[in-house]
Amino acid sequence: MHTLRLLQNEWVKLIKKPSALIMGVILVALVATLGGGTAYFTEVTAFWEFVADASTLYAVTILFSIIAAGSTVASEFSSGTIKLLLIRPVRRVKILAAKFLVVILYGVLMLFVLAGASLMIGGLLFGFEPLYINEVNMLGDLAETYLLYIGELVIYAAMAFMISTVFRSSSLAIGLSIFLMFTGPQMTMLAGRYEWAKYILFANTNLTQFKENRVLFEGMTVGFSLAVIAAYLVIFAVVSWQVFQRRDVAV
C-alpha cells in the first residue's frame, strides 16, 4: 500500500499550496458572476439551462489543471526538493505516476466544485427544477457532459505534465499548453481539408461534439476520438517517464 502513501504525499503538497484554494474560490466566484449576470440581463432563465451554461466554465478547470500539471515536477527541480525526493527506495516511475494521478484528481475535484457551485447558485437564483424534464434525467445528462470534460482535462494535463518533465520549466509548460489549448482547435480547422487532420489531437479533444451532434470531421465517432486521445496519452506518458527516469539530477 505504499502507492497510497505516495499519493497522499503528492496530495498534501498540492493542496497545501495557497493557489490550490484560490483556484477553487475563483471558480465559485465565476459561477456566481455568471449567475448574477444571467439573472440581471435575462427575463426568465430555467435552472437546468443555467447549469448547462455554467458547465462551459469547465475550460477554467482545465486551465487550473494545466497549472497544477505544469508545476508539479518543475517546482521540485526549481526548489531543489527533487534531491530529497529521489534518494528514497522508490522507483522514479512510481513518483511520477503519483504526481500525475494527483493532478488529475485535483482537476476532477475542480470539476466537482464547478458542478456543485452551479447547482447551488442556480438553485438559489432561479429556483430548483425537477430531476426529470421530458423524461430525461437532467442530472445524469449533466454527469455525462462532465465525464466528457474529464477526458479533455486529462489530455491537456498530460501535455503540460510532459512539457514540464522534459524542460523542467513550469512557465514554459503552462504557457505552451494554454497557447495550444486556445489555438490548437483553430489550427486544426485550417488543416481541415486534409484527410489526416482528424488524427490531430485537437480535432478530438472536445468530446462534447459527439453529444451535441456537431462533429468536426465527417464520420468521426466517440470511439475514434477516444482512441486518438489514448494514443497521444501513451506518447506523453512514455516521453515523461523515459526523460524522468534517465535524468541526471544536478540542481
Binding site: V12, K13, K16, K17, S79, G80, T81, K83, L84, I87
Partner: peptide
C-alpha cells in the same frame, strides 16, 4: 543524506 543545501517544501 543531505546534498548541498537542505531544501524543503517551504509551504509545509
Amino acid at each position: 543524506g543531505i546534498i548541498e543545501n537542505p531544501e524543503m517544501y517551504k509551504h509545509l
